[in-house]
Design a protein around this nucleic acid. Sequence first.
DNA 1: GGCGCTAGCCTTTTT
DNA 2: GGCTAGCGCC
Length: 1140
Amino acid sequence: MRFIADFHVHSKFSRATSKNLDLENLYIAARMKGIAVVGTGDFTCPQWMEEIREKLEPAEPGLFKLKESLEKACDARVPASCRGKTRFVLSVEISNIYKKNGAVRKNHNLILAPGTREAEALNARLDKIGNLRSDGRPILGLDARDLLEIMLETTDRGFFIPAHVWTPWFSLFGSKSGFDSIEECFGDLTPHIFALETGLSSDPPMNWRVSALDGLTLVSNSDAHSPMKLGREANLFDADLDYDDIVSAMKTGDPGRFLGTLEFYPEEGKYHLDGHRACGVRLSPDETRKLGDVCPRCGKPLTLGVLRRVDDLADRPLGQTPRKRHSYQSIVPLTDILSEIFKVGPGSKKVQRAYMSVLRNLGPELPILHSLPLDALAESGILPLREAVSRMREGNIRVLGGYDGEFGTVEIFKPGEREALFGQRTLFEMGPPPKSPAASKKPGALKKPAAPPPKKPRTPKPADAPEPVFNARQKAIVRAAPGPMRVSAGPGTGKTRALAGRIAYLIKEKGVAPQSILAVTFTQKAAAEMKARIARMIPHLKTPPCAATFHSFCLDVLQSAAKDDGDGRRFSIIDERERLSLVADAAAMAAEKGFDVSSRADELADGVARAKQALLFPESDLRNAARGMDPAELFAVYRAYQDLLSSQLLWDYEDLIFETCRLFESRPDVRDACEKRFAHILVDECQDLNFAQYRLIRLLAPPGKSVFLIGDPDQSIYGFRGSSPGYLKRFLKDYPEATRAGLDRNYRSTPTILDAAFKVIEKRRFDPSAPKVWSDLAGGAPVGIIRTRTEKAEAEAIVAAIERMTGGSGFFSLDSGRADGAVPAGNRGFSDFAVLFRTAAQGLEIKKAFDRSGMPCRLLSKKDAFFKKDLAPLICLFKWVHDCAPVLDMEAVFSRSKSGVGAKTARAFKMWRYQKGLGLSEAIRQAARLPLPGMGKAAQYKLTAFFQRIEGLRREMSGLSISDRLHRLAAFLKWEPSLESDPKTREGFERLIETARSANGSPRDFLDSLALETDSDVFDKRAEAISLMTMHASKGLEFPVVFIAGCEMGLAPFERAGEDEGPDERRDRLDEERRLFYVAMTRAGEELYLSHAERRMIRGRLVSAKRSGFVSEIDEGLRRDVDVFGDKNKAPRQTQYRLF
DNA sequence: GGCGCTAGCCTTTTT
DNA sequence: GGCTAGCGCC
Ligand SMILES: Nc1ncnc2c1ncn2[C@@H]1O[C@H](COP(=O)(O)OP(=O)(O)OP(=O)(O)O)[C@@H](O)[C@H]1O
């Protein structure tokens, strides 16, 4: 069967598309155009998918049709002459923006799916990579190759077509951010590319000039953003109405089944010629080359069009064709033809009426333009139509080429010619067609001088290369003789690099066994970075050195020591929530015992942590740890807390260090073994050492040991958990033989950024005599200061600025006409940006703004706080029925499951069992027999009855998978309603199920992976995204462009109302705030922006705040005010956006 | 003693 | 915008 197909369209859920793009209107438009197979577009968009499921039903294999009743209603709105079959095929266009080979790449890709199951499977994968909701054409920070791979992993029947491959901004071969070959883009997966979409600005003859495309099927689609644009380009098939046959026709290019394409005149496309829109300069490629690619009016670079780009990559002259090719027909939309005939706009009432009348008389549009015998056109009732279509089919028309985002214009009749031929009033009369006048020539005649492809000014990032480069001072550190050594150096001076280099040096040149090296830091991220750098310097190491955080190293020591001792107990590590809850319980027990407990649980918890960080036992002198509290109170709570922990085999984070120190002190044999094992110890970020961690190092490093500390005292930001750069000085006292070294050359930031940051830290430096860090990187844009009215406007400003700097990520293209403004337009990738802020809560508003924009971002935050709270009863119940301590949220379980057991009974039970030191199961057993103190008979009856229900539940668990168990427990907690109604709860539950699936082991493993779940696990590592994080979390990282949000008094430096602190305490705290700001500023490489809002919601209260004092301390010459939005205080959103 | 509702309170940073 | 204490009703 012969038919026309258009696969690339969009729904109303895509940006800047017509609001009436629903399935009914797509159907109606397809009928009027004569299209039998139309893409749904946007199948990754959940809202659109919902409509698809609601309104479509399966028809022929892999195809869908409008449901009968809808179809009937739609047919009534279509001229009878146009009625016929129209089928839908699931399709989507994805915008890929990513870095490859050191350059930012942006391309669009079309995917066809054989069915909803396959589409949903793909959606599930992509959902983890980017935001599928906010844009029907999702923007993913994902390599196009990886997208193809994900599609292939999901279904072997999907079909992948690089879209409009020549457009400058967003395409495979685009001059701005494309590739020079398919292989460069798709690498090993190139054989899975069978077809290319030529796009509006190119036609088959242009593509035939590139021999590398021989053998690929050139397809054409409309990329319609409104129903009536449907089919302005399309494909002709003679195939079965069947997804697989259609796809196979395109895959093979079988000329019997894929007949060819209907093409827009390429000159009409927005980017056909070269030019500069702001100056109204339109040029052919040859002219542009002569001008050296700059605008003759203003000297700015010209936007090079498709013709030029093809010319650059072509290896054949125009007219020479490959052996295998398909025929094509260039068409002009009927409304444009009518518009010219009537000399009124294509959207005018007059043209619309004429359009409908032509359709009523002759049938659908595309056959009229393409194949209807000319004589039949005489039936149209519009006299010049026959002549116009005839000229169009022969290419006998004049087209003024489009350039730099400006559409081209078509002219079928020369000025005055139309009137001369037909007279003014005869348009609607029948008449014999007049003779065709001579053809006019198309502009931009193609002659190709043998010019080499232009070199792109792209500098590969050093990060992609191995890192063997060290300056002289770094080299001295790397190669220093083993022994105690302390390096103190500023930001970006290559501390981490030197540490990794030293490890590589020890292994490679000194023959040190990798396993005898211990490298420790403080965060998982830093440890991972260390590992990665070592691996890059010495790849293929069988046993890599131990690179870990203090905490994971200690856990390892404790566990292996227990194993060696035959101690089979397994301790669990509790998280912050559990710690607070247990401290509260401990406080209650202490109060029960008659202690006067008046402090809040979180203060007590801090006190306990401080004590442990100082290696103090409950019985020790707690006066320092107690701060404002009564030491006796802290003693009682600390002791009760330790009892609770040890009776349930629990450790908190502090215990890991504390217990390891204790182990080493009480068991010299264990200490000796560990000390021998690790002949070399290296500590990164050593300004963050606290007392316990420093003690640990001393225990492992007797005098003369090869122990290497590297850090920057001005970056010490964890004083609130006991860290102090003082241990750097202390180290020199304890190891008088230690070598000292420093570094002062920064390789990260421009001098301007360094100067600005130095201004902030200058007065409060740890060592005022230390040399100032310098850099000679080029480019010194001043620090941008952004001021907005509200925090919401601040978030929008940051989003808009990043949008501009990425060169527009999809919904507005960055034609040179709009590339002015306060923020440099650019061509950066998402991973080049970080947005930093003081409090995690600020990140939420910023995240929302990014989600609205559709740009991919990653909020790195404490994962539990936001989603574990809702899930607490479920997780608690899970632990309960699997006998995994600690079961801490019993009250929530009681109330959720309508047990009739209230807080008071729960409390009495808990206190009783804690006092008796009973495990949960033993306590439950006894509660069934003995009367419990402080509890009435009725209450105890309800309690024990509930315990029996739990027993029953426990029995139900056997044989079920983890996720089935979770579902069963959720039902027990009567959770379905809130899963339905509350999206947050649902999301949390889904994440839980996801974790359960991937853990796929014992319940214990599931709980462990839940405890370890970091945000990065939730995201696909292949995807690039803008990083959103707290200033603290940014330590050790670097980004070319950094935004620091919330640069206001109260946030930077942070102030808490009603804080009672002494002057010394306050000074120390403010100094740390200052260092934190310094850390944040020095993350930036090339550009730094500090934003502040005049008003912001804090605690539900609108608070006004002045700009941060830190900003004022930066010399005015080093900063400048930036107005992201220009005059309007509004984002340039939803700019009228038309197709390429 | 449980349960639902409201008013008023408070919210840093992390292993 | 979320959490808890306290109130009144069952
Ligand atoms: N000798 C060098 N030549 C070129 N680049 C270097 C050199 N030394 C370090 N760099 C680069 O400088 C940047 C900063 O290095 P690194 O992260 O090791 O610094 P750091 O001192 O640990 O920084 P910070 O304390 O701010 O976290 C990195 O991108 C690194 O690759």
